[in-house]
Design a protein around this nucleic acid. Sequence first.
DNA 1: TCACTTATAATAAGTATTGAAATAAGGGGG
DNA 2: CCCCCTTATTTCAATACTTATTATAAGTGA
Lengths: 401, 401
Amino acid sequence: MRTSTVSDLRQNNRAAVLRSIVSAVEATRSGIAAQCDLSSGSVTNIVTDLIAEGLVREFGSKPSSGGRPIARLSVVPEGAYFVGADVGELGVTVEVFDLTMTRVDRVFRKLRTRSSGPRRVKAAVADGVAALRKANPHIERALVGMGLGLPGIVDTGTDGVTRVYAQSLGWPMVTLDDLLAGTDLPTFADNGAKTLATAELWYGSAQGAEHSIVALLGRGIGVGVISGGRVLRGASSSAGEWGHTKVSFGGPTCSCGGRGCLEAYIGGVAVAQRWSAVGGRDGDDVEATVSELFARAADGDDTANRVVDETTEILGLGLANLVNLFNPERIVVGGWLGLPLIDMRRRELDVEIRRQALSRPAEQVALSSCRFGTDAVALGAALLPLEHFIAGTLELPESAA
Amino acid sequence: MRTSTVSDLRQNNRAAVLRSIVSAVEATRSGIAAQCDLSSGSVTNIVTDLIAEGLVREFGSKPSSGGRPIARLSVVPEGAYFVGADVGELGVTVEVFDLTMTRVDRVFRKLRTRSSGPRRVKAAVADGVAALRKANPHIERALVGMGLGLPGIVDTGTDGVTRVYAQSLGWPMVTLDDLLAGTDLPTFADNGAKTLATAELWYGSAQGAEHSIVALLGRGIGVGVISGGRVLRGASSSAGEWGHTKVSFGGPTCSCGGRGCLEAYIGGVAVAQRWSAVGGRDGDDVEATVSELFARAADGDDTANRVVDETTEILGLGLANLVNLFNPERIVVGGWLGLPLIDMRRRELDVEIRRQALSRPAEQVALSSCRFGTDAVALGAALLPLEHFIAGTLELPESAA
DNA sequence: TCACTTATAATAAGTATTGAAATAAGGGGG
DNA sequence: CCCCCTTATTTCAATACTTATTATAAGTGA
């Protein structure tokens, strides 16, 4: 974000004010001034602009302590709409959000097979978006853009082309353009773990922290690292590939071909396998198997508890490594595997992290669970165009003018 | 860096211009304009200011292609001076640099024992600084500040107090203030690996890259992560503690008390031990032992080569993990252990990293060796006050006015 | 000497921020 | 019911900075 001219400055300040209003349920001019470190005069100017643009409105007022009442400000929900899509193994969820990031509508398009090719996914996304636009014609006027949460590596090269490597779905490399085709919406994409981290950063458990780690445990093991208030992306936006970091020489072979990957220990499939290896249920449906594992453990089943303990220990090691490397204030654990795990073993996990990490960074970090389930992947994806909209790099469609 | 007012803007642009002139050997107005993305008018204004302040000067000109010759600009070396200190196990090196970051003078104060307490180090630093000031009275006029490169964790809490945890020296926790006392210079401190990374970022192999990893291998295993052009610090500035990340369950016990730490495999002591365990030399002086190991390996000694191979492999695993997590463009390896290792096994290390990391991020990364040896720790430390000086958060002493 | 280039400098125009002063909106006491 | 007090917002003058634009400097080649 280059701020070298006076208009960049205005842009930045406008963005800060808009962001502040969007993320607060209710804002006031002086509150914004304090939060954005701006004078009341500047806030007045910017808010006046935003009201003129139809993005913000005043709604009533609340009493001040003995003076002129404070005007309440809020975003105009209909001011802009954003689409977010969660591309998963079972299907594609497409959702529309208004400017308050309230979900307006959603559709789910099931995929026939567990690993449908990009063509099917493309069709499902296009179909889902079309269905939403048809069912909600009023959004058309202010539909700004779309974000995709994808499994696997989403990599934006120096050439500006976004490429998707969804190895877990068995896809070949696909460019984002290939995956979109029909759609005329400006579209952004990111790895699902990163979009979930973005959602937690804006509205969930990572809110307010400058440095957090959002670990997403499911079939895959992902992490979104928040550093300096933004999601860490690295040179080509593929930073945060935690699942295939090695935690053991040799070790079990992972789906990536490597050995000793963290995912080969605590990924959904691995946990289910570890359980069935010691006599647990052995089913096709990993999610169901793991869920039963947790249920058994809760019921006091020793074997199940040992598997859960072991998982906790390895997760603790993995998180401790991240604590040493990133020195976060907060660790947020989520995902369909992570949420029940942390519910059941929060204290133990906390102890394990502190045991395995260096004491200094470990002392600074707080452990918590995600506020959202994986259903927030689409919300986080929709935050991608929102961020561009706020930053001013994405505008309302012509028709709005 | 909050840029919300017009003067912040000026400050930022001034900083960008000054930084550009300091890091280039020779600058021109239009070159600066291009590099900093500013108009020629603005550059003229800012440069005029800098010349008036005595930080920059014009020196001659070079022909342009058929028009008015281009004025050469350079920093005035005597415009400001910075002290950098490298606190090592054997002694304290204190150096003074001028504004071109050319070393003006240096002193070394030996520490009696390998792990002298903070009191001795404090005395050595104070003595070194005093000696330099006495020997170079002309620097006094423009002595801006000091930076310390320290072993161990340097942690700046939310209270703003900088604390040093130099476990490898057997120190208790010490605050930076304790460590300074007598000195009246504004002082900053950072972990030695991070200051070396800073030096490599400004003048060495990490120059020009936005995202790099600078791995420093010696007795300890440290890394400075450069993300978005700046050294990653995390919540309390202790990010980058790579040496004690776990790469193996169980595994050998490390000096930190943990097991399976990377440092317990490829730290200087561990490498020496691995060698002596298979019949290599067994000496007190780790550095000499390791240096002999490399010499033997170069001579074709099979045992030595096996130890070096094994070290390469483990280092490759460790770096691959960082590649997955940070998605850097460049990996820079240095330190008294790292430099000879990469000289001898560059290809093999490269192959190993690519084998163990995910292919996408691995394809994007280039491996190289540090331009500087560990002697640049003091240079990097001196860059801390330089950065503050450039950013305008640190000024020339009163006497200069 | 006279176009013609290219690099800087000077100037004009426009815009943003701030801080002070003005104004708006209520509360409460006499 | 009027006046004073408090607090929130707006208005406005002062200031500072960037960008164009225009002028000037300093050479080249004919």
